[in-house]
Design a protein around this nucleic acid. Structure first.
Lengths: 184, 184
DNA sequence: TCGCGATGTATCGGAACGATATATCTGGGT
DNA sequence: ACCCAGATATATCGTTCCGATACATCGCGA
């Protein structure tokens, strides 16, 4: 199962949950709104849309929708979520496992937290946190191990990475606290 | 020209500049020391080593080197930089252009700043900064554009990305200041 | 002495993406 | 009134890239 493609599926379904959209705009949203997919290309998006169509999770919106400009010729295909698509999205949103703790996966899941149950939100936030703490341990161990043969710049890069990760962890901790408050 | 592979070439040459190493350890260093290549696989590394061998930039170190453990059977191939390899590395280190301003490219270049002339360092730092500022502009424009239809979580994710980028810019500014002082 | 996790080299098929082609619409300059 | 550059929009394909996996040895604790 192609992990990256699954994530893209999830992201597209999530965006279409808000409002119907055509490919070009989907790409723009994917490139900005979500942290992952900073450089998603059409070479991935259009095949994905076709696949989602084939599975019946999205359909071409027939009338009414109207983008900002409507000309004469056929073009501009607006997609909308089907009932099956909504169900599929929810299934994915409700699932929290190690796979949701990667850099890109976490961002996408987080972006759709508004449609995710509190318990699942908590598990994902905590899983992500421990993933980052593992990374931190590796970074620290490596920087001790190679302390001597490291020049100032390499050290600075390492330290900077370490600090960014630490800040990320603190951010997560705030979110976890807030989430616990909600639950209670 | 395969951009990613070129970057890997550069990184490998740079690491071998410090000390001879075998593939397994190279991978470990690539995964930790540099920010990029967090998940580099052997499927990329070994072909790269073969290519570098073919171009005469690295060679198999014959005697003496000895890793921590030395058994009996042939295995464990230690690579070292050739004179041509050193030259090639320096050519790459001395070059600063838009290609050096990407996320991964910047990290690798930065890691080898100790072997990079001050003028080039400055150009790379400044180029990277303006790249991040462009990204910031895009993020901000998008978050204004989609202000209404954005829930709290999506907004938080966006804001968090914005803040990280801003911090990155500030970090670069410190480095640029320091670099200017050195130059004077 | 058994076995398991770390060390180490190597390959391949399928996934992903950059580059690119095509066409229309729109706004601003002259 | 006209033009054209750039945004909007869909679509594909060859090349690059990497995850999964195979294989073998080593060091070490139970």
């Amino acid at each position: 199962m192609s992990r990256r493609a699954d994530l893209l599926d999830f992201a597209v379904l999530g965006l279409l949950h808000e409002t119907p959209m055509h490919g070009y705009e989907l790409r723009k949203r994917l490139n900005t709104a979500l942290g992952a997919f900073r450089a998603l290309s059409y070479g991935s998006l259009y095949p994905c849309l076709r696949e989602l169509l084939g599975k019946g999770w999205i359909r071409e919106a027939t009338g009414a929708v109207e983008g900002p400009a409507r000309g004469s010729t056929r073009a501009r295909i607006v997609y909308e979520l089907t009932a099956d698509g909504k169900e599929r999205f929810q299934t994915m949103a409700d699932k929290a496992g190690p796979a949701s703790w990667g850099d890109e996966e976490f961002d996408v899941h987080f972006a759709f937290f508004a449609r995710t149950p509190t318990e699942v939100r908590l598990r994902i936030l905590e899983g992500r946190r421990s993933r980052l703490e593992e990374r931190l341990a590796i970074i620290r161990e490596a920087s001790v191990r190679n302390r001597e043969r490291m020049d100032n710049y390499t050290a600075a890069l390492q330290r900077h990475g370490e600090e960014s990760t630490e800040r990320e962890v603190r951010w997560l901790e705030e979110l976890i606290t807030a989430e616990r408050k909600i639950r209670s």
